[in-house]
Amino acid sequence: MLSHKFVRCMLTLVVLSSVVITGEAFASPDSYSELSKTDDRIEYAVSLNSMASKLMNWYGSLIITNHSQAGKERTNIVKIKFPTRFQLWKEHRATYPEKITGIQIRSADLNKQGSSGQYEFEIEVLMTHMQSDKSEKKLIKELFLFQISDSRQPEIIQVSNLSPTANENLNHSSQTILNDLLYYKSREFAYGWLAYMDGVNVMSSQINIENWIDNANYSVKIADFELNEQVASSLQKRNQHLGKGGHLLRSIASKMIEGLNNHYELDIIIDWKGTDPSGTPAISKISQVIQFKLQEDGSLIVLSIKEKHLLPDLEPWQKILC
């Protein structure tokens, strides 16, 4: 038994070692370029997160609130609304189908337009909608032009329709779209929260952060550094400890909290990259479990955030046990 285990173990390690031997070469860090790289990363992360939060709000607000296709377990969120305060949204709404029941983002491509603070977000979405009591599908491709203001607030200044790339017969596809209101509200919040952690508040208008930032509990565990305070003070101390960097969303999952109406739990994994307070490059794989209550007006009250920094996924062999 032992010999077999030994042979298996060694084979795995030998195969992996041949992969790792060809590893990448990196330039040795120099403090100026490292800081400059970190600034670029923060700008990218903040722009992406704040624009993504706006887009999630945009698409979420298109979905009708009382459809029956979203699944039995989500029927208690039918009254949630996405506040839509943009004139442009009202003007562009007519280009979409009437009764949209689900939206799936199929592709997203972000491009910076020179140094003007403008970004183009090319999005392709598949929508399901009701037409004469029959469910139909429609593929839409559009280009959002964002302007980031001096206070780093993103604003959608133009939306143009493009020709969709796919030519499949959508209505014969058996694929079911379940990306409903909770899907978009969760992501609107998650991207907004990530931007907030990097110093940009896009949540005031959409999520009403003022309602919970000083009340909810935020626990943080980074190795033996631990905090357990209100969100505002934990976040400040945590960011001081971490240093300077940008958060990017890696995965997100949401579920209802059993027995509590309109209470949800969000499980997100975030990649953080930056420099520690002394300027040394640093990375984190962050797990956050966020419990929140969704209000009927579309605002959200965060109840608690639990954060833990995990082992980053760096090498293919790191999960091997021998």
């Binding site: 565990k221 520690d276 040394t280 794989k285 980053p312």
Partner: peptide, 10 residues
């Protein structure tokens, strides 16, 4: 030479 970032949390 390699970039050796601090692995926060480890």
């Amino acid at each position: 030479a390699e970039e050796l970032p601090i692995l926060n949390g480890v």
